Simulated assay, not measured.
Amino acid sequence: MNAQHDRLVQLVEEEVRSTAAYLGIERLRPEVLEALRAVPRELFVPEIKRGLAYADHPLPIGCGQTISQPYIVAVMSDLLGVEAGGRVLELGTGSGYQAAILAAMGVEVYSLEIIPELAERASATLEELGYGERVHIRVGDGWNGWPEAAPFEGIIVTAAAPGIPRPLADQLAPCGRLLIPVGEARGIQQLQLQTRMPDGGLSGCTLLPVRFVPVTGDLGQTLEPGR
């Protein structure tokens, strides 16, 4: 931990308070804040960008992809509500930073990345930091999830989708939560939080406007909440 980590946590906490009306929370769980302090974000960005690693905004990581704003990573990690020992599916490994935050919280992460170069780089970084045993990375299209590892207490989608992938909804455990940015590619999306109900349907809400890079690959069936 150092002053940069502490300053980042302060910035994220301020942003959470300013968006409390959208999020329904005014502060993040302690384990999320500790993970933000523990994970060295500079190792997940290109060397040329490391001077900006602790600014609270996204950064390019190559291959047309970005590392998400720390505020968004922290909020999504918190709202998943998964405790240490729980299992989370991540669609879109990217830099590996989101997976590292969850792993630092004691969560077991199954992460899918369609770009082999990013998957390889993220895997190496996570291994270097000692998170390799908690983060399982597979190269491939994430739309169909990771059925043999299901069910998951939480599913997090880190790319914009036109709707909720039906396979992901089916892989949620009862009362499991799904966080996903839904909307048009290259535009503004709405971050949705959906919970799987006892009957298998989804119930949830829209939280706040966000901007993510789009999901790539073959998009399959989507599911409307409540169906």
Rank of each mutant, 00 (worst) to 15 (best):
S111P: 12
R196V: 01
A21D: 14
Y22F: 15
S203K: 11
G145I: 01
C205I: 10
L33E: 14
P30V: 13
V215C: 10
V157E: 05
R41I: 10
A3D: 15
A185N: 08
M197E: 12
M1D: 10
S77V: 00
T206S: 15
I101P: 08
E83G: 12
E108V: 13
K49C: 01
E153F: 02
S111V: 01
G183E: 09
L91S: 07
E34P: 04
I115N: 12
D218F: 00
A35S: 13
G183W: 09
S111A: 09
V88Q: 10
V215P: 11
L129C: 05
Y110A: 01
H5D: 07
V210P: 13
G220M: 04
G140P: 08
V210G: 09
R211E: 15
P162C: 04
L36Q: 04
G220N: 03
S95C: 11
D6W: 00
L223H: 01
P40G: 15
A104S: 14
R29T: 09
L89N: 06
E148V: 03
R27V: 01
Q194Y: 15
A35Y: 07
V139T: 13
E83Q: 15
L33D: 03
G132C: 04
L23A: 03
A119N: 10
G130M: 02
E184H: 10
I137N: 01
Q192K: 11
G163K: 07
Q190T: 12
P209R: 09
L219Q: 09
L79T: 03
P174W: 12
R196D: 09
I114A: 07
G176R: 05
Y97T: 10
A161H: 09
P198F: 06
A122C: 10
R186N: 14
E15V: 03
H57R: 15
H57P: 09
L191S: 11
H136K: 15
I72Y: 00
H57F: 06
A103E: 14
V210E: 12
W146M: 06
I156Y: 02
G140D: 12
I114D: 03
Q194D: 06
G183R: 02
M105I: 12
E153T: 04
A149P: 04
A99I: 09
P198S: 10
R166Y: 08
S111M: 05
S111E: 11
L52G: 02
E13D: 14
L11P: 00
P167H: 08
A122Q: 03
M76H: 00
V210K: 07
H5I: 00
M76K: 00
R227V: 03
G81W: 13
E31V: 11
G106V: 13
A3I: 10
R177Y: 07
V82E: 05
L168S: 08
A124T: 05
V88A: 09
P30D: 14
Y97H: 10
P70R: 00
V88R: 02
G130Q: 03
E47S: 07
P151H: 05
F44V: 12
A160M: 15
G183M: 06
E108D: 15
P174A: 04
D141V: 14
T195K: 14
R50C: 04
A74I: 00
I115H: 09
L89S: 05
E31G: 01
G106I: 10
L168A: 08
M197I: 02
M105V: 08
E120W: 07
L172W: 13
L59C: 12
R37P: 11
I61P: 15
A161W: 05
I137C: 03
A53C: 09
R196I: 02
Q98D: 14
A173C: 06
G64M: 13
L59T: 05
A185W: 14
